[in-house]
Amino acid sequence: MRPMPWLHCLRGVVGRELLRFLHQRSRFLAALVRPLVWLFVFATGFRMALGVAMTEPYQTYILYEVYIVPGLVGMIQLFNGMQSSLSMVYDREMGSMRVLLVSPFPRWYLLVCKLLASTLVSVVQVYVFLAIAWVYGIQAPALGYFYLLPALLVTGFMVGALGLLLSSLIRQLENFAGVMNFVIFPMFFLSSALYPLWRIREGSYLVYQIAALNPFTHAVEMIRFALYERFNAEAVTISVTVAAVLLALAILGYNPSRGMMARKGG
């Protein structure tokens, strides 16, 4: 096929996802309220207990709210990625997934388009969140907001592909509560999103080791460094590699018949 039809397909999938997102104001609101509650309530409360000493990439002593923002950016993407990937396989999106998969384009390409679309939705959410944080007084250098974009794309693909892979592998993850308990919360809490690694190490060496292995830690650090105009080669390498591997596995493992036959034999 010539290149133009491929671009039309991509434009169609991304355009539809953004349109749907605009129509679902409650979903948008929920996606924003979650990190804002963490920022305004949790971080404010912990400010006293948890001052963060000078640590890279920050150039001065920072308040806890400042530290937690990149982690919350990761959280927005984690929730969005899981939500949209799971709904790709189960229930509500079932019908639209069929429409997508009967397109003549190869399945891997359709899945990549779909993951990119949901990633872009999370990018919109992230920038709105950062705008509110900016007004609140948490301001990163201007260029940082620009460098952040590629980092968000990598993280979006990573968590979206993970969601897709999990939903093809584990039948019990059908409901979102299960995913929250067994995937989102462990990934988020056992990472550098809430505390720096060195601080976790002081608390528990075991938790530190888990957090250091957690790919979400590296995604958060990639986001943190990018937002402060720095390039963390280690975090970027690990994040890109993990995203690529998960994407490949998700495409290989994706089986559209899962969940469909169970619903309707006819």
Partner: peptide, 21 residues
Amino acid sequence: TLDPDLSVAQNLAYHGALHGM
């Protein structure tokens, strides 16, 4: 399998794009 929140034209445009139009 139509998207109820989108217009008729938007639904059809989506399908067209999926067929590379």
